[in-house]
Amino acid sequence: METEDGPPGGVTRYDGDWWVQVGQRPYDSDGPKELPTEIVYAVAAIRGIDPTKVTAPTLYDCADVSAIESVCFGQNRSSRGPLESVRFRFGEFLVMVTSNGWIQIYEPNESQRERLAN
């Protein structure tokens, strides 16, 4: 689907490309589901597939999620400290985890890339 303004959501520059947010999912670090599980579920929801069908690449091959967990939600993190966010490529998507408990999923925005080139 093409629209002039693109889908709603934030735009971010990463790895030389512009990316547009296509979904997000809350993450509770005290909850029963682990961060890797929630990230895969967020991507599966955008792709409209079952989470068990999200296969290659594995999240393990894309990011050190336990390190992200400790940066964003670790015990040493002060609640008054600055907002932490970590971004990484996961297959065709860009994933951003923020310390206020969100997993945001971005896709590359082709039209914006072309507009900037002109």
């Binding site: 682990e34 890797p36 296969t55 999240l59 393990y60 336990s66």
Partner: peptide, 26 residues
């Protein structure tokens, strides 16, 4: 069990493969 399956597939089994504790056939 599905969320556990996902965490095994994307986190714990690859970690154990890296450590040479298990092997995984895709």
């Amino acid at each position: 069990w599905k969320p556990i399956y996902v965490s095994l597939y994307h986190a714990h089994v690859p970690r154990l493969v890296d450590e040479g504790v298990v092997a995984f056939d895709e």
